[in-house]
Design a protein around this nucleic acid. Sequence first.
RNA 1: GGGCGCGUAGCUCAACUGGCAGAGCAAUGGACUCUUAAUCCAUAGGUUGAAGGUUCGAUUCCUUCCGCGCUCACCA
Length: 589
Amino acid sequence: MNPSAGPSSPRPPAPMSCRRRAGGTSLSGEGRGPPGAGSGRGLHLRVFRVDGDRAPRIACASPFPRGNREMADQTPLSDDLGATEREIIAHRLEKAAGLRALGVNPYGNGLSPTHLAADLVARYGDLPAAQIAEDPGPWSVAGRVLAVRDFGKAAFLKLQDRSGQIQVWVKKDRVGERDFAVYKLLDVGDIVAATGPATRTRTGELTVEAAGFTILTKATRPLPEKWHGLTDVEQRYRQRYVDLVVTPGVREVFVKRARIVSTIRRFLDERGYLEVETPTLHKPEEAGGAAARPFETHHNALDLELKLRIATELHLKRLVVGGLDRVYEIGRIWRNEGIDRRHNPEFTTIEFYQAYATHQDLMTLTEQLFHELAVQVTGAPVITFQGQAIDLTPPYPRVSMLAEGARALGLSPEDALAGRGLAEALARAAAREQDGADAWKLEQAARRSPGEIVAAAFEVFCERQLPKDRPAFVVDFPLETSPLSRRRDADPRLVDRFELFVAGMEVANAFSELNDPADQRARFEAQLKAKAAGDDEAMPFDEDFVRALEHGMPPTAGEGIGVDRLAMLLTDSPSIRDVILFPLLKTRE
RNA sequence: GGGCGCGUAGCUCAACUGGCAGAGCAAUGGACUCUUAAUCCAUAGGUUGAAGGUUCGAUUCCUUCCGCGCUCACCA
């Protein structure tokens, strides 16, 4: 994937180094630097920043005024600084003052580079220095300095912008006295701009040979060590801004995540779906659509108890009633539950609903979508997740929850659903189960309905045996596991539902929707009973939703996909926190 | 919430059985105009996550607390 989000081909080298926004001071070109700014021979584009509209000033002030240390020490600093860091920050503040003395605002604005690092790579590729010299630019780049190799009167900088990295070569006899004085106030981590022709150094690295150089933003805190970077995952999540700068691949993960979302959006738009937004603040009776505990909040002016939504389902189905036959929502939902490698309290789902479709239609659509995602995001239909190759090329195998769950218990599907010999089979299975937690799970299931027992047996014995080298649809869900699904006409003990598993993770859940208002009312009533019996994940009775169904919802199929887990798969990330920019962490101290 | 593990300089890590808290990078001063973790000389940098306890002596052992990771339960 091309990491550059900019122009696909390099713009022709601009005659002027940098674009100026209105109100800015025009850039000096050849011979128009501040007084005393060094020799004027050769290409001598100059990049510098002047505060406001004032003219350039102060060419040769002391670049490093002494007596600023006291000032720096008085600058408000956080209390949590060690002596080393305090000293580093004080030094950098002194350098910021030195920049001001040179007429350079250490937090200047108004100067935009006209090129990206990737533009130079795209233009020159592997061309040798001699050919680059035939058409060397100039080029104008800006970015964060990740490394400095200083030789006294010259230096190599490793510059990083949104497209990649490019080396900048700052030579005193090329940039002139003043810009070199600016360079001398540089620290790793600062954001700089450089202008000059391209070249290739003796060691073969594509390089901007700076004819003009300035510091745009002074970083007063040091970056982590250049070689090891940040390895403490806690710091990486808490200070994602640092992580993005210094940890290779992090930016690419979030670029891919954005591409996942845009690919889904385009996929559904092309098929006539309408994107909508529904409330995230739910009244208590609306906060259903899934089995989960909601977050609670309160609206002051209305004095209203509210919950953050746990699903988008019930509102989207109301819209299908209203005639929006194909709708989808990509949005954040919140579930007040545990946190682990696959769960974050807030996460993103895509839910879409299609009238006059069945869950069979959605299986085909899902296969097309996942194949498309793999190609668009990773460039190929076969992805690699944690060392396992997974082929997302359709079709995907179907695995029957009923047949496999019953078989794991040594029963026929008929006997299992009828409960014949089920208790004994379950006890035998639990007894031979080595894993204590799984055995406990089976024992707990014994108190539940036959359908739920089959589902539990499938979960314990069969889920881990699903194909690892490709996705799999789990089908034939017992009715009791699916309160919002439509019963199967051919066998009312089952529902028309599937879940898609990839790499052992459930990433999609879909079914033909229940649109019989009487049945829906009965199922909500069952939820109320469950809640009264202590199930705090049971749904509330949403009277208005039943009312909507009473107006008639066309036969509809709907699906929900976990965007975060999809991002894990397509970026080969082992933890959901690696695909969430700012995962929830406890407050420190 | 349970179990296991981790927390030492800005960053990455050492410190034996309880015995003077150390190194690399970064920083600071100096040399160096083709480097790739540049090199060389010198200097400085510590509330060992926090609070207690045991001990002549605690980074080390014990207790409690805080934070993070893995895992189990719940869940998508």
